[in-house]
């Protein structure tokens, strides 16, 4: 899923400082699962902003709404009747949400309340880690299900780089060297020679480097 972190209260306050009435919109998708932009977090942020603004002698009215998904035009329609009743709309969805809202309601102003970080999952309660870089050409089968594109700091197809020590990456002591893990796994399975295969230079056209991407399923297009 998509992992996001909430922006700091100061940054959000600064974005909406000139507005008196806003709509705060959450999303029941990924950001609910990673506890950053669901109904609960919408409530917490709304209350915090109202208290902060009241304390500053500049009270703000905030209505709350959490959509099934902000990345689907069908659900984005759920604010059609109310979107223009506000000075601005703040989205707590990933970066897709405020853009879908902007496109659906061009006359309104939209602000993001979260920073979209990566595709990943929870490794323990409260900790999420990156697992996929969305490069568009999955190669994890070459590396026993571990992705060096997303998880190696240098996205090496032929690692390790020589900068790792004790299974940790040279960029920080708390970052796993995924190549260390890949090599260990291959050794345990007696298949280290798999890594001798020289891979072709990666085709980055399917990643973001080839420009904005689109996925078309002809059978679903009406």
């Amino acid at each position: 899923m998509i992992i996001a972190d909430r922006k700091s209260l100061e940054e959000i306050q600064d974005m909406i400082k000139e507005y008196k009435k806003i709509l705060l919109v959450g999303c029941k998708g990924c950001v609910t699962v990673c506890n950053v932009g669901g109904a609960k977090e919408v409530g917490v942020l709304a209350a915090t902003l109202k208290i902060a603004r009241k304390k500053d002698g500049n009270p703000i009215e905030i209505d709350e709404k959490t959509l099934e998904r902000q990345c689907d035009p069908e659900y984005v329609e759920q604010i059609r009747d109310i979107f223009d009743q506000y000075d601005a709309v703040v989205s707590m969805a990933c970066g897709v949400g405020p853009q879908f809202l902007s496109e659906a309601y061009p006359s309104q102003k939209f602000f993001p309340a979260v920073n979209t970080k990566f595709f990943g999952g929870a490794v323990q309660h409260g900790i999420w880690e990156e697992r996929c870089a969305g490069c568009g050409t999955c190669v994890i089968h070459y590396y026993d299900g571990l992705c060096p594109i997303a998880r190696c700091s240098k996205s090496l197809q032929h690692g390790p780089c020589g900068g790792s020590a004790g299974g940790k990456c040279e960029i920080a002591k708390d970052v796993e060297c995924i190549w260390d893990t890949i090599v260990k796994k291959k050794m345990e399975q007696g298949r280290l020679e798999d890594l001798r295969t020289l891979r072709a230079p990666k085709d980055w056209q399917t990643a973001r480097d080839g420009g904005p991407r689109k996925s078309i399923r002809e059978e679903l297009v009406q």
Partner: peptide, 13 residues
């Protein structure tokens, strides 16, 4: 120009 126009289409800009 974008690499897509050149002779190394698969590279990262």
């Amino acid at each position: 120009e974008d690499p897509g126009l050149g002779d190394h289409h698969q590279t990262k800009a």
